[in-house]
């Protein structure tokens, strides 16, 4: 039996008391999905598709309207959950947000990384150790004494990630955490995410708009209109170009190029994801 860290069963969510009538319809509509421990999953979807809502449901910032969420086998929708249980869920499922400025609390980088462990009531000596380890893991040790506003966007996001690592999470959800960054910062953060997944075995849920980032994942889930629309490996998902376009999503440029070439009658495969791969195929087709 496969080891699932997160199991979502028939989950629905409607924002309560929303004033606009058109928001009355559920943001998430009977979703079921399982996330394997240690996997790197990308969640795609256009604005308002419900992907951020899903992230907030998973770490109990929001409570589902109906359905069940199991984290590590424990039902977090159980009304019997104590406050301690809730904080345990939030500790094990970290959430990194979009705006790097709005999630750092302290005026010094290392103090900010210590914020989470301090809230958990961990002894000072151990916090020190965790903070040093976390900063080393994201490569920000030399900035430990800096103030957050002296850092670039990518560096701030890495500090935010360090803040979660220091709480020793099982899973980190990135809620469009690369959307506000420049290409350099995006690369830094993506490298950090990959490292966490590979070396620390942390399960990663990466919510994004950027198709090229999704290519790196083990699995891609497309959410559309509050429902799971496509689910599979990047190759499987991105070969469904028409379906993706219908959901308002693009495919990576190379994949789009190959699709057009196929339409022109060239016998090329539909599941090309990386530029190198594409270049090689084109070269061999031309000779």
């Amino acid at each position: 039996m496969t080891d699932y860290l997160i199991s979502v069963k028939d989950l629905s969510f409607t924002y309560p008391e929303s004033e606009d009538a058109h928001r009355e319809h559920p943001v998430l509509n009977h979703i079921s999905l399982d996330i394997e421990r240690g996997s790197f999953v990308c969640i795609l979807g256009h604005n308002g598709s419900g992907k951020s809502t899903l992230a907030k449901l998973l770490n109990m910032i929001l409570t589902p309207t109906s359905g069940q969420i199991l984290i590590d086998g424990k039902d977090i929708t159980d009304p019997q959950m104590t406050e301690e249980d809730i904080f345990e869920v939030r500790r094990s499922i970290g959430l990194v947000f979009q705006n790097p400025d709005n999630q750092l609390v302290a005026t010094v980088v290392e103090e900010d990384v210590a914020f989470g462990p301090e809230n958990l009531g961990i002894p000072p000596a151990e916090i020190r150790e965790r903070v040093d380890n976390a900063l080393r893991a994201v490569g920000m040790t030399e900035y430990a004494g800096h103030s957050p506003h002296q850092l670039s966007g990518g560096q701030k996001q890495r500090v935010a990630i360090a803040g979660l690592i220091a709480m020793l999470p099982k899973c980190i959800i990135f809620d469009e955490s690369t959307a506000m960054l420049d290409p350099q910062g995006r690369k830094e953060v993506m490298n950090t995410i990959g490292m966490l997944n590979r070396e620390k075995g942390i399960t990663v849920l990466h919510i994004t708009h950027n198709m090229d980032e999704a290519v790196a994942a083990d699995r891609v889930i497309v959410i559309n209109e509050g429902e799971i629309y496509l689910d599979g490996t990047p190759r499987q998902v991105f070969s469904e170009i028409d379906k993706l376009n219908a959901a308002g999503l693009d495919v990576p440029q190379v994949t789009a190029l190959f699709a057009e070439l196929r339409q022109c009658g060239f016998g090329l495969p539909a599941d090309i994801l990386s530029e190198e791969e594409g270049a090689e195929l084109l070269a061999s087709a031309l000779t």
Binding site: K56, N59, I61, E83, F87, R90, R91, G94, L95, F97, N99, D101, N102, Q103, V105, E110, E111, A114, F115, G116, P117, E118, N119, L120, G121, I122, P123, P124, I127, R128, V131, G163, L164, M167
Partner: peptide, 25 residues
């Protein structure tokens, strides 16, 4: 807007006031 975002981020990092909180330094 920042205040709202920060509040959610703090909650995600298990903030619950001063009770049971330790300090690194």
């Amino acid at each position: 807007r920042r205040a709202g975002d920060l509040a959610v981020a703090m909650e995600c990092r298990c903030y619950r006031g001063g009770n049971g909180r330790t300090k690194m330094t």
